[in-house]
Design a protein around this nucleic acid. Structure first.
Lengths: 340, 340
DNA sequence: CGTTATCCGTTAAGCGCTTAATTACCCTAC
DNA sequence: GTAGGGTAATTAAGCGCTTAACGGATAACG
């Protein structure tokens, strides 16, 4: 094979028909007879023809691509396996189809907005995935203004925006009930940044469950997902006032970081302190003691979001899809509280 | 702003000139007077004009995109921070320019080849990045056959292919010298899969340095980067025959996994066993004891590769660029061997 | 047997942009 | 006064594909 790509007019010439006929044949549309269609298709793949995405986009207005931009500082993004797993799921749903993934990571919200706007302007994407929604997220307004099909990965907080969500609140309750069943009464949740919708939703669920279970000392503190911030916050929580006996984190990195802090303070885990991580990961499995964690179906989320987005692009309804439920994976960082 | 995107003919109409003039003005080419150019540009950004990538691609043959496909099973890819850091670097070099990143993860080599071939056929990318080169890599032949500009992230093993590489051999020697200086004589390298060129190159360097330093017991064993395989291999190495006093791993996950195995075997790290991880990462920092590791400039590699690729696409020479050198970051998993 | 429908295929316009070729005009030079 | 040379614009073709609109057979129908 040489470096020259065949076009439909090469095929047309070879088959002795017009390019129109070729187009109809190749797209499985009526207008050509079965024998002709077959002949055309044979020639097409003998020539190794592949449609030019540019030409196709230009004439039918479809980009055959979807976009994902993740706005996390480089420092943090490398650490969490979350995004790679998400992308795995996304690719799974994309595989086989004609759609590609445009991926961008930015380090501030303005750049993220600019990326979406540019992709839209350049007609590079047919739709986008939105992750890490925040309160009054400017992206929501943007995609609406641009009429850019979008699917949110997260709770259905925006009424008419399609989304794929996981019942975190259920999981929060489950974790709390589990800890209470073990005998814990003083439990602190070390959450991610307040601005994220999912942070708020989990915190709300945490507070509600704590009230229901009668835990006056339950409270929420915040860090920024980084190990440094988590260490700082954890240190403070464990050393000031009456210390909790169990900590629930919003990601795996912070939980691992806390493991280090506990060690540094001479607290043995889980005997003197129980820990629960949020997204389960190899990190949780590998660390000693292995972390008890809440496992969410991340790849499933990605795949579902892609399917939904493709539907919406094709004019489907803006459904709000729920994934399977998270599950608590108890390992070696949770046990009864010390009997003081 | 509405959902309709302005085209150059809208601008032309508004400015009272032809679309040709608009094109010349917008691309900063001669053919229009300064005042006219200014007027056109003003109108263009008042209208919020953004060039249609499809139209541009179609007429100038440029896709303004580069592609990256990573072929690692989903199980493994989420774990290593390597790729996210790489992507961070890539984005950094892409930021501001007109080029986007097409990203795909596949779970077998055939799918990876198919992805490249399809992107080429669809004229979706102007060039691609190649990671994890293997011996007689079919991708090398493919990009040559397709005349698809490509940059290898790895050692310059293919003469005429541009690449960005890091002097791993130097780092391997440094690690070995360091361990020998601490007193170690029995050192085992737990490498990644043999097929990777970088695995082979590091192993060669390891063997050479070991010979030079007079370490007859130095040897290389292989795992597949996963924690399970690493655990298996490590367990075997530590329990059969005369056990090594130091282990050098090819990634961070395997090293962490070995930490668990050592613990399980009742070997204290670093007193009875020293460990060195290859790519440094938050994982290495967070784990207790914190892992000594070799830090490579990963984001720098990504950025350099992008710059080189863009050069090559523009007809530049197929340079072979060397990044800054890796550095050994000693932490808490390396010390003198036990004095048996 | 003339009239419709039906099927198969062609024609040509158009998607938004680039760019070679061309025209129109103004200056300068001889 | 006119040839020559810039400069500033327009024209139009073309990139590869889709798709309305159209045309020419052939089959079906009364």
């Amino acid at each position: 094979m040489v470096g020259k790509r065949p076009t439909i007019s090469d095929i047309a010439k070879a088959a002795g028909v017009s390019t129109g006929a070729v187009s109809y044949a190749l797209n499985n549309r009526p207008g050509v007879s079965e024998p002709t269609r077959r002949r055309i298709m044979d020639i097409a793949d003998r020539l190794g023809w592949v449609p030019s995405s540019a030409a196709r986009s230009l004439s039918d207005g479809r980009a055959n691509a979807i976009g994902l931009v993740v706005d996390r500082p480089a420092r943090v993004i490398g650490v969490e396996p979350y995004f790679m797993q998400l992308i795995s799921g996304i690719q799974g749903a994309l595989a086989g189809g004609p759609t590609s993934l445009l991926f961008q990571v930015t380090d501030n919200s303005a750049a993220e907005l600019a990326a979406y706007r540019r992709w839209w302007g350049e007609r590079r994407v047919d739709g986008v995935l939105l992750v890490d929604l925040v309160q009054n997220d400017p992206r929501v307004e943007l995609v609406r203004e641009l009429r850019l099909p979008a699917v949110v990965l997260g709770e259905p907080v925006v009424p008419d925006l399609p989304c794929v969500w996981t019942d975190d609140e259920l999981a929060v309750a489950e974790v709390l009930e589990y800890l209470v069943a073990l005998g814990h009464r003083r439990i602190v949740r070390v959450a991610g940044p307040t601005r994220f919708v999912h942070t708020q939703s989990r915190s709300r669920a945490f507070t509600a469950a704590a009230a229901r279970l009668g835990l006056p000392d339950a409270r929420v503190v915040h860090a920024d997902y980084s190990d440094e911030a988590a260490a700082r916050v954890t240190r403070r929580v464990l050393t000031s006032g009456v210390a909790p006996t169990a900590l629930v984190f919003d990601n795996d990195v912070m939980a691992v970081s806390a493991l280090g802090v506990a060690h540094e303070l001479g607290l043995s885990v889980p005997d003197q302190l129980s820990l629960v991580a949020w997204d389960d990961s190899a990190l949780c499995r590998l660390v000693r003691p292995a972390l008890s964690a809440v496992r969410r179906p991340i790849a499933e989320r990605g795949a579902a979001a892609v399917r939904l987005l493709l539907d919406v692009i094709n004019g489907g309804p803006p459904d709000q899809v729920k994934t399977s439920d998270p599950e608590l994976v108890p390992r070696s960082t949770t046990t009864h509280p010390p009997t003081t």
